[in-house]
Amino acid sequence: MKPVTEDAKGYRRLIPSLTALVEFEAVARLSSFTLAANELGVTQAAVSRQVRFLEESLGVRLFHRLHRSIKLTGEGEALYFVVAESMQRIAGVYDRLSNGGEEQELVLATTAAFSHFRVLPRLPELKRIQPQLKLRLTTTMFTADLRHNEVDIAVRYGNGTWRDGTSSLLFDEEVFPVCSPAWLEANASPQSLAELAKAQLIGSDSTSEGWMGWEAWFDAAGLRPPRLQYALRCSLYTDAIEAARHGQGIALGWRRLLTGLLDAGELVRITEASVKVRDAYFVVIPHGHMITPATNSVIEWLRGGAASA
């Protein structure tokens, strides 16, 4: 039997309870003592005792206990990020060893529009460069808290600053009007922003992520038209683009999303007017998740074609 080393003794002294850390991680990730207890198969009282034990051992509060919710303190966030990352690393190695070293499933979270226009059409390329990769797509809002979801990579549009993961730039974005070649053939092309404002516009509801609608686009382009009269309004951006493809009018085109349709000639730009938005697309890795070679490969695939676009 190997003797217990001084380092091992030190770990036991500094980390008095691995059980407490496991239960703390579940509470922090789920923002609930009750949900953590259900996940771990123990009582809520047992989870509370373990977290209280950690707080007493450290001499700091890990959670703000509010009336109907809990929130990590600054010290709690610092501990959570380290614990979550360490547990993910252990779990990842364990999974690979227990499955004979095979690559595990990778979960990619995007909005429906990003998945529809940017991810799905390019899946054959990903299968070519990563034939063993098992990809699972999940649709989320850009603002969904990654700590509450089993996500390996998320794509978000914004300023790149989020508290639940580490972000890196995918690409910037610009927005301009698009229509189908058939619509352009059947209708006179607007010669000014004022004429464009009176054309058959297809609108889609603005989202909480900051995607602009026609009113905001005209304002950014330098025109404040009277109340717009839409030929069609959609709640989903994907529907607005499909309507434009089928010749129903002019929609706002987000360049990075529509590169494939523009290159294929299914959509065309109707004017040189364009708005470069301040925010951009970022890839976000949730805290506690390892960046593996497969993860890097997917990120580069997501970024692929950005320069040429």
Rank of each mutant, 00 (worst) to 15 (best):
L97Q: 04
L97H: 04
S98L: 09
N99P: 00
G101N: 07
G101W: 01
E102I: 11
E103M: 14
E103R: 11
Q104S: 12
Q104F: 00
E105I: 05
E105T: 12
L108A: 02
T110V: 12
T110A: 13
T110P: 01
T111H: 05
A112F: 09
A112K: 10
A113H: 11
F114V: 13
F114C: 03
F114P: 00
F117P: 04
R118T: 05
V119P: 06
R122H: 07
L126F: 02
K127W: 13
K127S: 15
K127C: 10
R128G: 05
R128A: 14
I129W: 04
Q132I: 01
L133N: 00
K134I: 14
K134S: 12
K134V: 12
L135I: 12
L135R: 08
R136I: 00
R136C: 08
L137S: 01
L137M: 12
T138N: 07
T138Y: 03
T138P: 04
T139I: 15
T140K: 14
T140V: 15
M141C: 05
F142D: 13
A144K: 05
D145T: 07
D145K: 11
D145Q: 06
L146C: 02
L146R: 02
L146P: 05
R147S: 15
H148Y: 03
H148F: 08
E150T: 05
V151G: 03
V151N: 08
D152Q: 02
D152N: 12
I153K: 13
A154V: 14
V155K: 04
R156L: 02
R156A: 05
G158C: 01
G158M: 03
N159S: 12
G160Y: 04
G160W: 01
G160Q: 01
R163S: 15
G165W: 04
G165P: 01
T166G: 03
S167D: 00
S168K: 09
S168Y: 07
L169H: 03
L169S: 00
F171S: 10
D172Y: 14
D172R: 14
D172A: 10
D172F: 09
D172E: 11
E173V: 07
E173P: 00
P177N: 03
C179Q: 04
S180Y: 02
S180C: 08
S180P: 05
P181A: 05
A182I: 13
L184Y: 07
L184M: 15
L184G: 01
E185S: 14
E185Q: 13
A188F: 10
P190A: 06
P190T: 08
S192V: 07
L193W: 08
L193R: 07
A194Q: 15
A194P: 08
E195K: 15
L196Y: 09
L196R: 10
A197W: 11
